[in-house]
């Protein structure tokens, strides 16, 4: 268990009287696909937001690759290697698919105080951006504006942006949310490919996908991890069944 890519200790976050994250500790190993499951309102998105930096925890510590990032703002964390795909698609409506990926490449290749050369047509940006689109299968839609994408394509683009960041850790918040069976299956295949190259935290409701993709699973209930283990352990754990799977 030495040297995890992500180590979270005793994270706490309250919204008023509601403890959305309650003494949450977790370690994600390098190269691992670590799924987080739990009922609606368990605090999965809140947890992801604290990892990414959009939300500040009230207490606790977050270490990425050994470095304490608890106090770092979100944009710094992105540069340190955390990429997040949002549960609710978050795109720039009048930017093309390629623009989104290129922006991610631009952001990781230093500051953007470059005022003269057109960003479009800058191969240093579009090259890696196209690679990211190819990975998720969006190449044919490169010139399409985000607002003209189907729901499934927008979910793919969320993923392509995260990949274009070349992160150390991918935070995927319900990448299959709202997808049909066919798109969902395609996404599962894609994630199976990605998990070869990335350390991943995967929040997902589709249990079939979770059990096929995850190396380990943590079960979150009321902001607290009640159990972490291999898929088989989780499947057969009585507490987990009672708290979550037991429907």
């Amino acid at each position: 268990m030495a040297d995890p890519i992500l180590a979270v200790e005793c994270l706490m976050k309250s919204f008023g009287g509601l403890r959305a994250t309650n003494d949450l500790s977790i370690a994600v190993e390098r190269g691992e696909c670590h799924a987080i499951i739990g009922p609606n309102g368990a605090g999965k998105t809140t947890f992801i937001s604290q990892l990414q930096g959009m939300l500040r925890p009230d207490a606790g510590a977050i270490r990425l690759d050994g470095q304490d990032i608890t106090r770092e703002p979100a944009h710094v964390r992105a540069r340190l290697g955390i990429a997040r795909s949002f549960q609710i698609t978050s795109l720039v409506p009048d930017f093309s698919v390629l623009d989104h990926a290129a922006l991610a490449v631009q952001a990781r290749s230093g500051h953007s105080f470059r005022f003269w050369r057109p960003a479009r047509g800058d191969a240093a940006l579009t090259g890696p951006a196209r690679d990211a689109l190819a990975t998720v299968g969006l190449s044919p839609r490169a010139t399409t504006l985000a607002r003209d994408l189907s729901h499934g394509e927008a979910r793919q683009l969320e993923l392509a942006i995260a990949i274009a960041q070349k992160p150390k850790l991918l935070l995927l918040d319900e990448p299959m949310a709202g997808m049909g069976r066919k798109d969902g299956a395609a996404m599962t295949r894609l994630l199976a490919e990605l998990k070869k190259d990335y350390s991943i935290i995967l929040v997902e409701h589709d249990m079939q996908a979770v059990f096929s993709l995850a190396d380990r699973i943590s079960v979150l209930v009321a902001g607290h991890v009640i159990k972490t283990g291999a898929p088989d352990e989780i499947r057969n754990d009585p507490d987990v069944r009672a708290a979550y799977l037991g429907h």
């Binding site: 979100a74 978050s90 991610a104 942006i161």
Partner: peptide, 16 residues
């Protein structure tokens, strides 16, 4: 431009 349309998105990719 991206920041003006969707601040959350640009911060998430590492732009302040």
């Amino acid at each position: 431009r991206a920041a003006s349309r969707n601040e959350t998105r640009v911060i998430a990719v590492g732009v302040d």
